[in-house]
Design a binder for these strands. Structure first.
Lengths: 282, 282
DNA sequence: TTGCTCCTCACGTCACGTGAGGTGGC
DNA sequence: TTGCTCCTCACGTCACGTGAGGTGGC
């Protein structure tokens, strides 16, 4: 009797020994046993101890290879009982498609982080009170569909909110910084809280903020609030014998994502300028 | 009294309205309220109804942008109360590092799937009973440290098992298909279950299975079982006036990952051959 | 008696989704 | 009365990790 037990368990391993050899935690082995995915070859009737055999590392490897590929245990269990080369290849195809989606999601996140970091960093270098002429490289943005304002005067936020449920249709992602677009400086001056379009700083954007010389100004405030910046910009233009030579872009360098107080957003307003021509003044 | 309630809630949105505008599920809004991450501006004392204001889409956007970046709600809540540009940039740096690790893990999985698919596909084309001479392209594998066999004759699995706890030290990953390496055909013939080294079919491997002409044979069995394949290969060599011109590689084209019966693994054995030279025979 | 291994619950994790059962206003 | 919206539990998800409390053999 004693001998029989010995010969039975002599070559077998306790859960701890098996765990050390395979690198799979005892808690994991117990869980896989519990759900019927992978069980020890033997249980002691009295003590309920689990005993594994060395060849079980092969059966275990089937499980660990698939779980390392991030395949759910349920799928592993299904495949275990009917695996063949074709079914395995099918599973790999499906898994690769999932992974493709994960990769795309990750790239998307990198892109958002990059876009936001660029704006935040340029915001950190800013001298807020000053207006200046700067040469800017071209920069892609997404130009949203034109805004339509009702007579009772929708706010910036109301107009923006109306878009949110439709972002999917227009390939707009609100994780990128949002801004405003005014075709003419005049419309910016008259209604700085009513951009002709919203924009988002998304590298896949088809609209290009063109390379060139820009008058650049800053202010702080909530979305749509520009303070006296439009007037200051116009004054600057007159005093420096320049003219506006393109649309006005409003970029929120520091928005609610990195600031607690939404009334102190760091706003950058840029508009292309040229030397005043003597042919026409507009 | 009636009027007061009206003016209070007039501009406010029910949870369903707010959900539709923002695209955030009502269950999510309730959960974020419950954990104190993002709460409605108002609760009705009697009905406990939640009421949101439109400007809250800004505060909500802070949450959704960060959760879309896969940042845990706990971290979002911490940043919410003390966010500034520097802290946000720090978080982005940390998040990018996490994402870098995820990307590496994904690439690793792609690599495993690729390696396994290659072996399985070539296994599907095989004529198992036949020996043939084939030209093979070079192929990288990882050569494990040499095996040491005790006198009482460890099995293939025992020897393999001894390595598993040390795989980390040798940069070996068991998710890649495992095989065997014999420096000489003689040692393969004498102890086909006792390879000089194990190998794994890992594309980062420094050991190259060289391009060239190989005698290729197949058998089925458990790890280390070769049946009469060594003898058949030697007979073939003699009959075709060839000689062995390199080490023997044992590759498990279909292993336990894609087969239920581990005694029917599809084994490919390859060894470089050359025409028998007349200078020296050995 | 002490120390060690093993056991079985039970609970926590993370961010919700999904009912169940009930209320309030048109 | 019916239909709609909202509410609060409570439970399920996924793959374990972590005790708590207890056992058995040296």
């Amino acid at each position: 009797m004693r001998l029989e037990i010995e010969t039975d368990t002599d070559d077998l391993l306790s859960i701890k020994e098996f765990s050390k050899i395979t690198g799979v935690e005892t808690s994991t082995l117990r869980y896989w046993d519990e759900i019927g995915l992978f069980s020890p070859v033997k249980r002691n009737r009295e003590t309920n101890y689990r005993y594994y055999s060395l060849v079980q590392i092969i059966a275990l490897n089937f499980v660990t290879v698939l779980t390392d590929l991030d395949i759910p245990l349920k799928t592993v269990a299904e495949l275990r009982d009917e695996r063949d080369p074709e079914k395995f290849l099918d599973l790999m195809d499906r898994q690769e498609k999932k992974m493709d989606m994960e990769i795309r999601a990750l790239r998307h996140r990198y892109s958002i982080i990059h876009a936001r970091r660029e704006l935040i960093n340029s915001g950190l270098k800013v001298q807020e009170g000053q207006l200046s002429i700067e040469h800017r490289e071209s920069m892609p943005v997404i130009l949203w569909p034109p805004n339509v304002y009702s007579e009772d005067g929708d706010t910036f936020i109301e107009t923006l909110a109306a878009f949110i449920p439709k972002t999917g249709q227009h390939n707009i992602n609100l994780s990128y910084p949002v801004g405003g677009y005014f075709e003419k400086f005049d419309s910016f001056k008259k209604g700085p809280d009513k951009p002709d379009n919203f924009i988002s700083v998304d590298p896949v954007g088809a609209h290009m903020i063109k390379e060139g010389d820009y008058l650049v100004g800053y202010t702080r405030g909530f979305y749509g609030e520009m303070g006296d910046l439009p007037i200051r910009m116009q004054t600057y233009i007159k005093e420096h014998d320049l003219r506006f030579a393109g649309p006005v872009y409003v970029l929120y360098l520091h928005d609610e994502i990195c600031l607690i107080d939404p009334n102190q957003l760091l706003v950058q307003v840029i508009v292309a300028v040229a030397k005043k021509s003597h042919r026409k003044q507009d």
